[in-house]
């Protein structure tokens, strides 16, 4: 298995008015191709910071971090990843197709190729037929699916998702989780997924990275024994409950020094 993301002794410190904040401390992590990795932990544990460092949106203070064997900056410029933010962030003056097309326009794809790709990724997130709708005409869940389509449009092998379903209600969230797994199976992408929901992390992931705050660090890495094919009711199986228990233990261990 080739490593897509490799972090060695990674540290990241923010300087704030209240002095330096150690957002990431001694992070060692390897993510292989095709894995679905969840980062879970309480707020302030550095899970989002780690994802942003991978995306070259934050800069590590020390240690090494590579994405596809390159520096995060080189990987970003090589369009190695698509990033899905917590808010869909669709432009209200663009249609759904126009929004998905935006990164393709920026990257200079031909008009014909843009059309073909927009149609393909909207099909992938089951939004075919909504091309000409404007964002406000869609529900929150549909908007977030459009933003996933936008991140998929330029064929990055790595998909980074920062609490993409955090603002949605649980029923919508369940359905989107199920669809995300199908999408992952169809596209064979590597996914980095930040969440603070234990069931979501266990249901989705092949690898769960448990993190804890002050300083932000990894306390446990769990390789999930669950099969890749996962119906929603897998959440009632003993294996699922056992992993969820271990995640909870990891989270609790991280809180001892509070």
């Amino acid at each position: 298995m080739t490593a897509v993301i490799e972090a060695r002794a990674l540290n990241l410190t923010f300087s704030t008015n209240d002095g330096p904040v150690h957002a990431l401390k001694d992070v060692n992590l390897t993510i292989g191709k095709g894995e679905f990795v969840s980062f879970i932990g309480p707020s302030g544990c550095g899970k989002t910071t780690l994802l942003r460092a991978i995306a070259d949106l934050e800069h590590p203070s020390s240690g090494s971090l590579t994405v596809n064997g390159m520096s995060p900056e080189a990987a970003r410029k090589a369009r190695a990843y698509g990033y899905v933010f917590q808010a869909a962030g669709l432009y209200p003056w663009r249609t759904i197709a126009g929004n998905v097309r935006l990164p393709l326009e920026i990257m200079g794809y031909s008009r014909a190729e843009q059309d073909e790709r927009v149609a393909r990724v909207l099909e992938l997130v089951e939004l075919a037929g909504f091309e000409k709708k404007f964002p406000w005409q869609l529900s929150g869940g549909m908007q977030q699916r459009a933003s996933i389509a936008r991140a998929l449009a330029f064929d990055a092998d790595l998909l980074l998702m920062d609490e993409p379903f955090g603002a949605l209600d649980e029923i919508v969230r369940d359905r989107l989780n199920e669809e995300l797994l199908k999408l992952w199976a169809r596209t064979q992408k590597t996914i980095g997924f930040v969440t603070h929901s234990i069931p979501e992390a266990v249901y989705l992931s092949t690898k769960i990275v448990v993190m804890s705050p002050r300083p932000g660090r990894i306390t446990d890495v769990i390789d999930s024994p669950l099969p890749r094919e996962r119906p929603l009711d897998i959440r009632d199986t003993p294996e699922f409950i056992a992993i969820a228990h271990r995640v909870r233990e990891g989270l609790r261990a991280g809180h001892v020094d509070d």
Partner: peptide, 16 residues
């Protein structure tokens, strides 16, 4: 900040 970050993830130049 999120919209600006999003543009950065696409390595969009300032004019864009």
């Amino acid at each position: 900040a999120m919209q600006m970050d999003q543009m950065k993830t696409w390595s969009a130049p300032g004019a864009t």
